[in-house]
Amino acid sequence: MTTVETIERAIEQLPSEELAKLRRWFLEFDAAAWDAQIEADAAAGKFDALAEEALAEYRTGRAREM
């Protein structure tokens, strides 16, 4: 049995209060991991081309208000 399968089985056995606690923890954990990945990608310049494209459209008047 893999680690993930073991965790799945353990989660299936949790009482509802503990499951709710796990959900809250995981949402916070996942959001923090996502934020860290976005920050790393931004620092590595992975969004630079997209930002420049958006700015170019804005400068030429092709942007519109949302």
Rank of each mutant, 00 (worst) to 15 (best):
E12M: 06
L50Y: 02
E39Y: 05
S16K: 14
M1R: 06
S16W: 11
T60Y: 05
A33S: 10
A20I: 04
E12F: 10
W25E: 08
V4K: 10
A20L: 13
A40M: 10
A63R: 02
G45R: 02
E28H: 12
A36E: 15
F26R: 12
D48R: 06
A56W: 02
R59E: 13
A31P: 02
D48N: 11
E8H: 11
L14A: 03
F26V: 06
E17F: 06
W34G: 03
W34F: 14
D48K: 08
D48A: 09
E5M: 11
E17T: 06
A56N: 04
A10D: 02
A31L: 11
I11W: 07
D30V: 08
E8Q: 13
D35G: 01
L27D: 15
R64C: 07
A20Y: 10
R64E: 15
M66H: 07
E53C: 04
G45Q: 03
A10V: 00
E53S: 06
E53G: 08
K46N: 04
A10K: 07
L19S: 01
R59G: 05
T6E: 10
D48F: 05
A49T: 07
F29R: 04
M1T: 00
A33I: 06
S16I: 10
G61N: 04
M66P: 02
A10I: 00
L22T: 06
A51P: 03
W25Y: 12
R64G: 09
E18H: 10
L19Q: 02
T3G: 13
E18R: 10
V4M: 12
R23C: 13
A51F: 11
G61S: 00
K21V: 07
T60S: 15
L50D: 12
E12D: 14
E52H: 10
R59H: 09
T6S: 09
W25K: 03
E8S: 13
A42L: 03
A31K: 11
T2V: 00
T60Q: 14
R9W: 05
E39W: 02
A44P: 03
E18N: 13
A54S: 05
A31T: 04
F26G: 01
A32H: 11
E5G: 11
A54V: 07
R9G: 03
D30S: 15
L19N: 00
K21Y: 09
L50V: 03
E17R: 08
R62Q: 09
F47K: 08
A33E: 11
E12R: 15
E39I: 00
W25Q: 04
I11P: 01
A51E: 13
S16V: 10
A33C: 06
R9D: 06
P15R: 10
A10M: 02
M66V: 08
A43C: 02
A51I: 12
F29E: 05
T2G: 08
L55A: 10
A54Y: 02
A63W: 06
I7H: 07
G45E: 03
A40C: 08
D30H: 15
A56V: 02
